[in-house]
């Protein structure tokens, strides 16, 4: 018989399975945080540790994140793992733009977060100048434990954040921190923030 008829006949005892009631918002947050698929965006050393996190010992699958998607269209979280060069920055921005809302960014390692020890002409001093970053993971490279902690932090943010939040408010231009990094370059080779180029 149908579920409804069972309940009509026997009350709650007619239920074959248990039910949990709650707000839709919570359900959405919960399911988002439990299946936030990362985009494969390995750049340098940190990518190796990111892959190690996917290995059997650290097992990122526990967090519902083992599906590293090659296509940004299918990914929810971008883990920027490694140093971002001036040549890579427009590519990174394009991949971020291709990701579907809602989307989050983890900046993994000091190079992605601030340029790290490579304070020179080639490296973008902080990926937050190009894309908005939700969680920064410190370390050079951050060990898998640090990355897992960053992921846990992100999940907490997802579960406590607003589900309908959109980033268009500030044009997705990052954390609002802009470093003038010209190094004698003309306008043509400057990375234009918040645009696709």
């Amino acid at each position: 018989m149908s579920l409804v008829q069972n309940v009509k006949d026997d009350g709650l005892a007619g239920l074959e399975h248990n039910f949990v009631t709650g707000q839709v918002e919570n359900l959405v947050r919960w399911s988002r945080s439990r299946s936030s698929w990362p985009a494969t965006f390995g750049l340098a050393c940190c990518a190796i540790e990111m892959m190690a996190t996917g290995g059997s010992h650290y097992d990122i699958a526990r967090l519902g994140m083992e599906v590293f998607r090659a296509s940004p269209r299918q990914a929810d979280v971008m883990i920027v793992a490694g140093r971002v060069s001036q040549k890579m920055a427009p590519v990174l921005r394009q991949i971020y733009d291709q990701m579907m809302e809602p989307k989050w960014v983890i900046s993994m390692g000091v190079c992605a977060s601030s340029g790290g020890m490579f304070n020179n002409y080639a490296i973008v001093q902080g990926v937050d100048q190009i894309v908005p970053v939700d969680v920064y993971a410190p370390g050079c490279p951050p060990g898998p434990e640090t990355l897992l902690h960053a992921i846990e932090t992100l999940h907490t943010q997802i579960e406590t954040g607003e589900i309908m939040r959109r980033r268009e408010a500030n044009g997705g231009a990052g954390a609002g921190i802009i470093v003038e990094q010209r190094d004698g370059q003309g306008e043509s080779s400057m990375i234009t923030l918040g645009s696709k180029r």
């Binding site: 304070n119 002409y121 080639a122 921190i177 004698g184 370059q185």
Partner: peptide
């Protein structure tokens, strides 16, 4: 090969600045 095609200058020349940005704490 390593720098973008639109790049100006040749980085390893000694008269090319390293391009270091003074580190400051913002926000």
């Amino acid at each position: 090969i390593l720098m973008p095609e639109t790049w100006e200058g040749h980085p390893l020349r000694k008269d090319f600045a390293t391009g270091a940005i003074p580190v400051q704490f913002k926000g």
